[in-house]
Design a protein around this nucleic acid. Structure first.
Lengths: 339, 339
DNA sequence: CTGTTAGCGCTTTCAG
DNA sequence: CTGAAAGCGCTAACAG
């Protein structure tokens, strides 16, 4: 590998000068500048950002610890985070948490060890036990993403309770009284809030809210499938289902398909999370669409602002989710489209 | 930030010893080991891998430059790459190319500057002009992924020509004689090979192979949509369509929907790339499914083996793709399922 | 406008 | 079984 010293030698200047012309940190004569650039060109010199970071005490990089390279919802968030970070001149380092506390700790640790200037984290259910305590021992700016887990930190997520309640209200307005819900990983704030919205929806409609029709889908397609099976095996099964997120929606559909149940003909379905292609295939899903891009963007903004001023008070932000009315709820075509 | 020196002081040993017990690079007495561990615990010490990498001349990290945090096909590949790398004790650094030569150069450069030990690249159409020449000036092991672009490098991708021909043959066997194709980014090896397969399919069926029914979808949903519009506006439009990849399939469907055309009733459709949910919604797409996980895994394996032995001759590997027969081709239920 | 020099935090001979 | 010391490649006073 060619180093700055090589370039300096070839350009007939000091490494200091080379460093300064590369970084534009101090004026240099036209002549030297040209000589340095030429030397860089000729040698194919490529700056070692590790050495640079070591000397500078900052890496110009941000870390994102999240579950779900496989989750289209998070893919959108990640893309937005990446774009916003790049735009601010920072590199994004990605680490997979698999929504598992141990793995999450590893991911977060890897990022800290790489000395990212700041960290974005979509906390797993067990974050309060491992990752978060660890982060408290490291003086590094952190913002929580998607899920809320610590009021002492900056957090961004979308509205969960009200939209879920809206979903239920919609099913009720279509005449349903037995409404089941497949819920995500226990302990996640998103799960908790969506369940709360579901129950509020039932109560608002004067329906029993005894949790009988709640099944744990663990935020996972396969588990959601089993959850639906359990629900449908009930003596008095639900006639409508609310799916807690996109992964589980797939599982729910698999379960229904296996039983030969048509949506919405035999059973109604509404879900949290939209799909890019939701309009194109049938059943066309009625969903709550989260502001994914906005979420990623906002999270980075919060982080960057804290990097500038670490003394800022912790901020918690909620972003609006959107009700998208399609066919899977089984409403007559003329059904109300909620705001 | 607490450093090794802090830990050493607190443990009453030298930094050398601390380094060795952390890395297990040389035996230490039970007593010292314990003291060091305790000191680490108490200080919340977190190793600075940048400094470590600088001293060691290797980062224990692999870089992946690819387009498409938004592409589910690549998401799978990325997940597999990540898993395989992690498994081998390496961290994965991700960079987005957007399939744009300039951006790709930046991505690759960023990775090299971070001194990744090896690099995986899904080359953009213009890679031969920018990224690849740049990489040749840097002595770093590279393996190409998904697309082929340089025989002098290791490359892994899936079979494209034969499967596409198979897709066409299938449509022919369903009785179609006007078969159009929406093709991906010009210049990509995958595009070239799939077009070749399409043409071979036509010729094998004794159909005209004048390229009249080929439309450029640029590997992008919106452009694919326009491409389909152009095709359908032809005096003698196709009765069946082949979509060159998953993004474009979405665009194709949008175009058909806008015209009120049903698949497969009004027009048949087959595509390259499977979708996780393809079985659950209608139309159920007949597709070629690529071995995504295998592809990512194999690419990392090639890279790791080259890291161990840089003198290995360049290898090019093709992975088998799978024909998945569903409904969108419009065959009678009893249709042949190709092997 | 440019160069000397002392680190940044870690690894690794070499010596004990 | 342990430590001193010389770098790894870069930045940033400080001095000129």
């Amino acid at each position: 590998m060619v180093t700055m010293a090589d370039v300096a030698r070839l350009a007939g200047v000091s490494v200091t000068t080379v460093s300064h012309v590369i970084n534009g940190t101090r004026p240099a004569s036209e002549r030297t500048t040209r000589a340095v650039r030429a030397a860089i060109e000729r040698t194919g010199y490529s700056q070692n950002v590790l050495a640079r970071a070591l000397a500078r005490q900052r890496t110009q990089s941000l870390g994102l610890a999240i579950s779900g390279l496989s989750n289209p919802y998070f893919s959108d968030v990640i893309a937005a985070v990446e774009a916003t970070a790049t735009n601010a001149g920072d590199t994004l380092l990605l680490a997979e948490t698999r929504d598992d506390p141990e793995q999450e700790l590893k991911a977060v640790r890897a990022l800290v060890e790489r000395r990212v200037d700041g960290l974005l984290l979509a906390p797993s259910p067990g974050a309060a036990e491992l990752a978060l305590p660890y982060l408290r021992t490291q003086e590094i700016p952190v913002v929580l993403l998607d899920r809320f887990a610590d009021d002492a930190l900056d957090q961004v997520g979308s509205e969960n309770e009200r939209p879920t309640q809206e979903l239920v209200a919609h099913l009720v307005s279509c005449g349903h009284t037995r409404i089941g819900m497949v819920v995500g990983i226990a302990g996640l704030s998103t799960t908790v809030e969506r369940v709360r919205g579901y129950r509020a929806g039932l109560r608002a409609a004067g329906l029993p809210d005894d949790g009988e029709l709640i099944a744990d889908g663990g935020s996972h397609a396969d588990r959601a499938r089993e959850a639906v099976d359990a629900l449908l095996d009930l003596p008095d099964p639900p006639t409508a289902l609310v799916s807690g997120n996109n992964h589980m929606t797939i599982g729910v559909l698999r379960a229904l398909k296996a039983r030969g149940l048509k949506v919405p003909g035999d059973i109604a379905l509404v879900a949290f999370d939209d799909f890019e292609w939701a309009d194109l295939f049938s059943p066309r899903l009625t969903v709550i669409a989260q502001p994914t891009a906005q979420l990623g963007e906002r999270a980075v903004e919060l982080l960057l602002s804290r990097l500038v001023d670490p003394s800022l008070p912790p901020r918690t932000e909620r972003l609006q989710a959107r009700f998208v009315h399609r066919d899977s709820c089984g409403c007559p075509a003329s059904a109300v489209v909620l705001p």
